[in-house]
Design a protein around this nucleic acid. Structure first.
Lengths: 307, 307
DNA sequence: TGGGGACATAAACTGGATTTATGAGCAACG
DNA sequence: CGTTGCTCATAAATCCAGTTTATGTCCCCA
């Protein structure tokens, strides 16, 4: 077990190895503006503060990030790469912020949204971010639940616009399809199915124990319907995350929304298994009380979700 | 311009509105372990510190995240959602960390990788993360450049394994295809092309001024080859990010790797424009000096990049 | 050759997070 | 029915990291 050669910190927690969000944001500003001072001004700090922050980031990473000259600062090659990676962190943080803001407000919001879990988790933060950039003054509140609670919120006028992912539209609501989602079968790369050359037929899928969400979840409903109520659970878990983790660890094949596993597929922690003879497609819909066509901020948000 | 109703901070910088990475990491640990104290232990801090950190995060976000009981802590519904969003931030930070670690090249690294920009930017951090989870003791160093510099590194034995995205394999190297990439045409949703129903024919693409990377970049080479050297630049920019930003702002159609625009497409900041009559596909390849088949850590990494 | 922009350095300040040291609620077990 | 052991909360002292203020240096340009 070769120990750290250059005084490596063998700590857990990445938080000590990654600059904080403020520093990453500053780096992005420097990249964009080409000057430490200008970046500092934009973020409302003084120039020495920016200088020292960048410097300590360079010390922490062990890489020179910016070439300082008396005439401005440019990123080094490594700095450009680091900045690109940093941008992804900051974007994720911005999505977090947009979601969290919406979760806070309750009564006095101008736009009250109710969404089912998968949409709230994967899609909504992005939409809220886009909405904020177009209409910065729109205060949004978010309530997450399942299709039933979304319908209740809308019908009791506690929400202005809803998003659901089920098979059918709850009664009393009008809807429009905003996107298509597919449930997909995934396994760890080590699973035997990952080496198959031919798709898994429906009957085999139905007879194989699968890692599944609990009965009653939208995902499970679609799968049961597609297989004719036959899905055999190997384990039932109550969150998408738990299902993913279980599949990654090689426990067996899992069925999940493709929205949930983009990252895992692209870094090969999971492998998509083709299936034939079943349609696991489902529509993602925006919904509103029959007749009350969305207007104002609701219409605005709706238009962001479609091409 | 209705001002903030609930004492809203109209500040810039999201860093002040988003809990720091340590707090997000702590939240994930609490979610996983079901106890503040256990999470604190895992992260090497004391229980009161964890308690106060979570509490101040709840105060900052204005949302209750965990239900504390004398018998442990469970996430609230909102807390579960926040945790899912937090996970994405932490994962981006982990990728950042993996990349940054590799950038501070040290002579004594066990695996020296040279990669072209697109791969280094979008794919490599994920691979390094996966590699670290399998072989925690493998010290990796990364050198980013273009196809030519990658070849030079390999041939002068300054790198053990390379990744290139060009059309051809540099002489003196063996290679294997590890993935396929497509250049795609994108515009802002407001662009006239976004409303077309039929694909854009090759001739029209060739005769339309486009937002492009500079001549010499891998992306540009592929496009020029596909169009027969005819691509007409509207602007030439030196980074993928600049091209994206320009396209998002509506300046015109841009041509980019699909790897670069996943996020933008899914939140509709950009729209993919179908094209016909040109093949903009390109292979992503792992390369190594002819004969020197990758072994050890290099083989390990290579196997992570393929199905 | 002086002005202005951009970055560096030094010292004092400030605030938030951490630790240490407790207290209190609940459950299981003998 | 108390004891033990887990949980989380609170209070006070400590400590460190980032910031500001106040300069200094370098370079370009007029």
């Amino acid at each position: 077990m070769s120990n750290g050669e250059t005084g490596e910190q063998r700590e857990g927690s990445i938080a000590h190895r990654v600059p904080d969000l403020g520093a990453l944001e500053l780096l992005l500003a420097v990249a964009r503006l080409g000057s430490l001072g200008a970046a500092a001004r934009e973020l409302g700090i003084t120039q020495p503060a920016a200088s020292s922050r960048i410097r300590s980031m360079e010390r922490q990473l062990g890489v020179a990030l910016v070439d300082r000259s008396p005439r401005g600062s440019r990123l080094t090659d490594s700095g450009a790469l680091v900045t690109d990676w940093a941008r992804r962190v900051v974007e994720a943080a911005a999505a977090f912020d947009a979601g969290a803001q919406a979760l806070r407000h309750r009564r006095d919001s101008r736009l009250r949204v109710a969404a089912s879990m998968t949409i709230a988790e994967y899609l909504l933060p992005g939409w809220l971010l886009a909405l904020r950039s177009q209409r910065p003054d729109t205060a949004v509140s978010l309530l997450a639940g399942n299709s039933t609670t979304v319908a209740e919120q809308l019908l009791s006028d506690e929400a202005d616009l809803g998003f659901v992912e089920g098979l059918s539209v709850p009664p009393g609501l009008d809807s429009t399809v905003i996107a298509h989602d597919h449930l997909i079968v995934v396994t760890a790369p080590t699973h035997p199915w990952a080496r198959r050359r031919r798709p898994v037929p429906a009957e085999e899928l139905a007879s194989t124990p699968l890692i599944l969400r609990e009965k009653g979840s939208g995902t499970r409903q679609v799968l049961d319907a597609a297989l004719g109520g036959l899905a055999r659970p190997l384990i039932e878990l109550s969150s998408t995350t738990a299902v993913k983790a279980s599949a990654v660890s090689g426990a067996g094949p899992a069925v999940l929304s493709e929205l949930a596993v983009g990252e895992e597929l692209s870094m090969r922690r999971l492998v998509r298994i083709p299936v034939e003879g079943v349609s696991l497609a489902r529509d993602l819909r925006a919904v509103w009380p029959t007749g009350h066509r969305p207007t104002g901020p609701a219409r605005e948000l709706l238009s962001l979700t479609r091409g």
